[in-house]
Nucleic acid binder design. Structure first.
Lengths: 147, 147
DNA sequence: CTGGTTTATTTAGTAGGCTAATAGTTGGTG
DNA sequence: CACCAACTATTAGCCTACTAAATAAACCAG
């Protein structure tokens, strides 16, 4: 059991890797002249896949907090990419939709994101992916249980 | 090759896992009455392991930016945990040291951090760790090469 | 229908991450 | 010596993250 350094390192390794990915994606988006941050892309993409979703639901699926979602949606709305519509039957809620410009922006950004995904995954294969998922889920679940 | 959903997911999985770890650690620190954020802990720990390190060097080893390090050190200094001393021979630099209070704080926080590390890693073994490192390093390196 | 609870969203405050710009320092070179 | 390029730390500005508390609407029990 020589886990001392290992246990110190795994948190750090995850942290630096995700930063690397985010930075690479942001850089490519900028280079492509797409005016989106990574987090803005994440919300835009989810709305595109589930039009009419509420802010709370969006916060849940993206693992962001409701206040964070509010502000990012504000920005996307200001850019004219997303539209808030009053929800029928519950005036507390908004349903979120992409505007035409939002759809165009999504279509433009999608291939850039896909390229970065492929680039990051590189030559790793299906078996690697299963290992990856197993280990990450394990770590994740170790924190989800009985607190 | 059914990588479509996989490639979409791996970024997200890393992102949510690191958030989970950070939140769990922050929660434990709070519960233990330790007035440190996760990032403050990271810097405090590095200074403890390499006393006299400069801010720039600290930024490099922790993968943070110099402005971020400046601000976090400001906070740690304000709390009386860290001390900036002018570097001998180079008036541009500061050497960073823990104060007595900083050492006490580090000693208090260390077991809490170690507990969270163990909890997150759970029953995963040495072989899992090797897989984990291989895959994360691969992703990391795919973004480090020739841009 | 009235009052209390729940839910969705917003606001305010503190912290961290990135970029760009700046002040001061250092060291090499004409 | 003077100049210039590189380096260290800082500041400012924008964006994101999280928390707690406020607001507003909806729901429910009496």
């Amino acid at each position: 059991m020589t886990h001392h350094s290992d246990q110190r390192a795994y948190f750090f390794k995850i942290d630096t890797t995700i930063k690397k990915i985010r930075n690479a994606l942001q850089k490519r988006l900028n280079e492509a002249g797409i005016d989106l941050t990574v987090d803005q892309w994440v919300l835009l993409d989810h709305i595109s896949r589930e039009e009419g979703i509420s802010q709370n639901a969006l916060a849940e699926v993206t693992y962001k907090d409701p206040p964070t979602v509010t502000r990012i949606i504000d920005l996307l709305e200001k850019k004219g990419l997303v539209e808030r519509r009053m929800a029928a039957g519950d005036r507390r809620k908004f349903n979120l939709f992409l505007t035409e410009k939002g759809v165009a922006c999504h279509n433009e950004a999608f291939p850039v994101v896909a390229e970065i995904r492929r680039k990051g995954w590189g030559e790793l294969n299906e078996s690697d992916y299963q290992q990856f998922v197993r280990i990450m889920d394990s770590i994740y679940n170790n924190f989800s249980e009985t607190e």
